[in-house]
Design a binder for these strands. Sequence first.
DNA 1: GTGTATGTGAGAAGCGTTCTCACTTACGCC
DNA 2: GGCGTAAGTGAGAACGCTTCTCACATACAC
Lengths: 127, 127
Amino acid sequence: MSDQRATIAEAVVAAAGAFTAEELHRSLAVSAPGIGLATVYRALGAMQEAGSVTQVGQRDGSTLLARCGRDGHHHHLVCTSCGRVIAIDCPLGGSLAGREVGDGHVITRHEITLYGLCADCRAHEED
Amino acid sequence: MSDQRATIAEAVVAAAGAFTAEELHRSLAVSAPGIGLATVYRALGAMQEAGSVTQVGQRDGSTLLARCGRDGHHHHLVCTSCGRVIAIDCPLGGSLAGREVGDGHVITRHEITLYGLCADCRAHEED
DNA sequence: GTGTATGTGAGAAGCGTTCTCACTTACGCC
DNA sequence: GGCGTAAGTGAGAACGCTTCTCACATACAC
């Protein structure tokens, strides 16, 4: 792994929540100037393939990513207050695959994105 | 409503399943040539605002739309065989809002996209 | 030293979407 | 009829995100 990729990996860890490639590039411009946008995209692509970074949605037309090394079937809760992304067990208990819904349609796969408040933001809201 | 918008609305109805703006524009180029891509985007935007067309995902970086006039809380099943989009009751029974998950996080909103086979394609598969 | 493989930065290119602009059409008013 | 206004249109430019291209750098094996 090159120095640049290590720096990008650190920046991903440092990012508390979801981020876009450009946001990461901007934050790197401060801590490690000189890393090109293309390099950021390449590194993020590799990390997505490796499974350490996941796509969690879209924002203003750009892809929203987040660090997530979790294995197995799970979904993500995006905190609408701080942007943090939290891995959550499937609220359907994995029972959906193969289930029949409506007039005989059968489900093979599903995608769920949850939005809400993380425990920290919820505690602050209650103050 | 202008002639063009009526034509576009017809094309949306004629489209069996999910489609992109460009696919719709291509199909219009055959049935009603001369309608500009910008007009298609404008009409689809108006239909989205009116609630007769809904965004159901992404394909190759472009937005996937489908006709859906259904009111109330529901989700969409995208048939992976024919591309048809079917409105489905929320498999969570609307019970998720306000529910607490994980370590005290609270959910306010969720998005679910289901993938599978519609009843027709399932019947054909079994042949 | 030489060759090869991999990664890099900069900028161009590609693509989906939106904006701009001149034009047309419909409508109301006199 | 003539006039003004508002809304919609087509064509193409512009925009933003992402990917590609290219020359260069680095590491390693022989």
